[in-house]
Design a protein around this nucleic acid. Structure first.
Lengths: 341, 341
DNA sequence: CAAATTTGAACAACCGTTTGCATATACATT
DNA sequence: AATGTATATGCAAACGGTTGTTCAAATTTG
């Protein structure tokens, strides 16, 4: 029963020719006679022969496998991103090896090691929000495994990156709130370490100060993205003497937690205060209080772009590894207004 | 710069010994002298040698890679399932190769082929809802690549399966609605081909007839899971002379679409009619009208279980491939009531 | 018709590692 | 001194392919 996968040897033996002949016949080498070629090809078809890519890759020192590591596949943002990656990968005959870090640097390292052991051709990674040591990643590059970071990118220059710049989008969003008449705009930001937090904050400060207003740092809170910390942030904001009438949240998971807090505390959402956010996840359309506006971060596009760079890196690697410049691909986030505002 | 990954040969050359000696020294073979062993091990450490697992696997004819194919990673159900798979896989030193079918049999086959080419040790798959040909899958098993189906399982017996039985849960859910006083219970089912649809319907019919009531087939609708078809189903139900006062939806994506329809048509949700569903996704907690009750299908557990079976299959494969019985693992879905009912 | 050229196919090395078997010392035993 | 026996190491084959080189036969050329 256990039909072994047919090999080139098997074909050679049956046809009484050498393996090299079979190999060449299959790849249509001109030095092989027509008769032999036909015979080999027919038998191959008959046996449903498929070359053992592992053996070939092994020789070529390529695996055609790209590792992808992201924090939580549950988050729509990342499942969209991996879809972009996968689709492009498939088109170029790459396959993707999957791993989650669960925002835990230790697990992240474990997964990185597993991928290294599997000898992936390259690695796409969106960093855990806690990651602050980069040796594991850097060592990959030393061994010739290119790494492209996307969305959650490291703070240093020497890396290939794809991310969404939120600075301009944030400025736009704040301006939009101002034109709608909201003056007291709170901002619940994410973890300090993330570049994305810095960009958002810079945009916020820029937009507020452009109105010749002093930035009130009491209105700027921070959350580690846990529900508890978000509740805490909301509490701090709403016990202020003059509470905000608009809240910008770091992303829509924070948004939903903030909304829940607001509901529990009888705040009149969309009346006495409004919410705007980042990510523009489709799921919010189904929720009771979607953000009035949200900044689209194009996860699918980011994934695609990251994979595109990877393919480029792998293509040029062989040629001149001397030219060592880094890709730094910025996708501008854009403000999406939701219905009925 | 391009530090090649060090090989056993490299070490052998530097120490002027043979590769076999190095290999044995590293695996602590007793026939190697202490001095040599130490030298080899030290140099290995120094060069940060790591064995090329690909070469070893190639020899062993194992890859330690398990393919996972599912319809849409975006759906929480599947991202939970893959997390269960991944975690267990990692514990057993397996890595997972990822692919989505997007519910398209053609793409499904492409991905299956890619996985076959990559010579995965085994395949876990949740079928596309359109799949009705199984040759691609069956051919894998012929070549000794075990396949375990989860959640969306094929209709025939000869396959390893893990799924959630919804029959009993559905009976419970209908009974619960009855005790709450709802008598006119509609049912928006999913595609006929899915076993899951059949189970749900059987449970519904069983529970209704157990009350000595005649099953009114006007109350049973079907959707292909698209928003349009769900709207259509809702329309059919609510133009009945006596419209339902409770609706069971196939899953929570259908639920959310149905809710949207209800809102658009000024139906008084949770007043003149109530909704219950399947899947029990956490996201519904954030929505305006979560289902009053939902049947938990334990995606994480299903993923874990499927991987567990796979590990078992791979473990026993070597031994006696004669014993060819199929695993058929049923996990009972359970009714979860939501707050405030 | 011998020499040169083309054609078709086999040989062998290689990728990195493991492992059964052979070999070469050194030492102990008759 | 001859034999036996550990002990430590090397050789070579194997996994499934690719590819540069060699070699023999068939064909063309002068």
């Amino acid at each position: 029963m256990e039909n072994k996968l047919p090999t080139i040897k098997e074909i050679a033996k049956r046809l009484n020719v050498s393996v090299s002949t079979v190999s060449r016949a299959l790849s249509n080498h001109p030095r092989i006679g027509l008769r032999t070629k036909m015979q080999v090809q027919e038998l191959a078809r008959e046996l449903q022969y498929e070359p053992n890519i592992k053996a070939i890759f092994f020789k070529q020192k390529k695996t055609y496998v790209i590792g992808v590591i992201l924090p939580y596949i549950r988050e729509d943002f990342f499942s969209e991103a991996i879809s972009g990656i996968e689709t492009l990968a498939l088109e170029h005959d790459y396959t993707i090896l999957f791993g989650q870090s669960y925002d835990d640097p230790e697990r992240e390292n474990k997964v990185i090691d597993a991928m290294k052991r599997q000898r992936v051709d390259g690695l796409l990674i969106s960093l855990s929000k806690q990651t602050n040591k980069y040796d594991h990643l850097l060592s990959l590059e030393k061994y010739g495994i290119p790494v492209v970071y996307f969305d959650r990118v490291p703070p240093f220059e020497q890396a290939h990156k794809v991310y969404c710049n939120l600075y301009q989008g944030t400025v736009e969003m704040v301006n939009w709130l101002f034109t709608k008449g909201y003056r007291r705009i709170a901002f619940i930001n994410g973890p300090d370490k993330l570049q994305a937090s810095k960009e958002r904050l810079d945009g916020y400060i820029k937009a507020v100060s452009a109105r010749k207003l002093k930035v009130d740092m009491q209105l700027v809170e921070r959350t580690d993205l846990s529900r508890e910390r978000t509740y805490q942030a909301m509490e701090n904001l709403f016990k202020l003497k003059i509470p905000p009438n608009a809240v910008i949240t770091f992303n829509e998971y924070v948004h939903m937690d903030a909304i829940q807090y607001a509901q529990q505390h009888q705040l009149k959402i969309n009346k006495e205060l409004v919410f705007v956010s980042y990510a523009n996840l489709p799921i919010t359309a189904y929720t009771a209080y979607p953000p009035l506006a949200s900044i689209e971060q194009y996860p699918y596009k980011q994934g695609e772009k990251a994979m595109e760079l990877m393919i480029e890196l792998l293509r040029t690697k062989a040629e001149d590894s001397a030219v060592k410049s880094y890709f730094n691909e910025e996708i501008a986030g854009s403000l999406i207004l939701h219905e009925g505002t």
